[in-house]
Simulated scan of single mutants.
Amino acid sequence: MADVVVRLGDACFAQARALAEATVRRRILAERRRARREAGLDRPWWGR
């Protein structure tokens, strides 16, 4: 029984870590997009 609880805890921890990493990635990408828009780089070079 203890083994099942440990495995469940490990699985929950791994899922929480994956969700946190995905959130950080989304925030970083959103910040990059915002910075590119503010710098006027949101259009490709041939459209400027």
Score class of each variant (00 low, 15 high):
residue 9 G to A: 02
residue 13 F to G: 10
residue 13 F to A: 14
residue 31 E to S: 09
residue 45 W to L: 13
residue 16 A to H: 01
residue 26 R to N: 06
residue 5 V to G: 02
residue 36 R to K: 10
residue 8 L to K: 15
residue 12 C to I: 12
residue 24 V to A: 14
residue 43 R to A: 07
residue 36 R to M: 11
residue 17 R to K: 13
residue 9 G to P: 00
residue 47 G to Y: 11
residue 2 A to T: 13
residue 11 A to Q: 08
residue 47 G to A: 15
residue 4 V to G: 00
residue 24 V to C: 08
residue 11 A to R: 09
residue 48 R to I: 02
residue 6 V to A: 15
residue 41 L to Q: 14
residue 38 E to C: 05
residue 7 R to V: 12
residue 10 D to W: 13
residue 7 R to L: 13
residue 19 L to H: 04
residue 27 R to C: 03
residue 40 G to W: 01
residue 21 E to L: 11
residue 10 D to G: 14
residue 23 T to C: 09
residue 11 A to H: 01
residue 17 R to C: 06
residue 29 L to E: 14
residue 15 Q to L: 11
residue 26 R to V: 04
residue 22 A to K: 09
residue 25 R to V: 04
residue 41 L to W: 03
residue 35 A to E: 06
residue 4 V to D: 11
residue 9 G to M: 02
residue 48 R to E: 00
residue 21 E to K: 04
residue 11 A to S: 12
residue 32 R to F: 03
residue 26 R to T: 01
residue 8 L to P: 00
residue 27 R to I: 10
residue 31 E to F: 05
residue 10 D to R: 14
residue 42 D to E: 14
residue 1 M to I: 12
residue 3 D to S: 09
residue 43 R to G: 02
residue 2 A to M: 15
residue 30 A to H: 02
residue 24 V to P: 03
residue 27 R to H: 08
residue 21 E to Y: 06
residue 29 L to Q: 13
residue 22 A to Q: 10
residue 18 A to C: 03
residue 3 D to N: 10
residue 6 V to G: 05
residue 38 E to A: 15
residue 44 P to F: 04
residue 25 R to A: 14
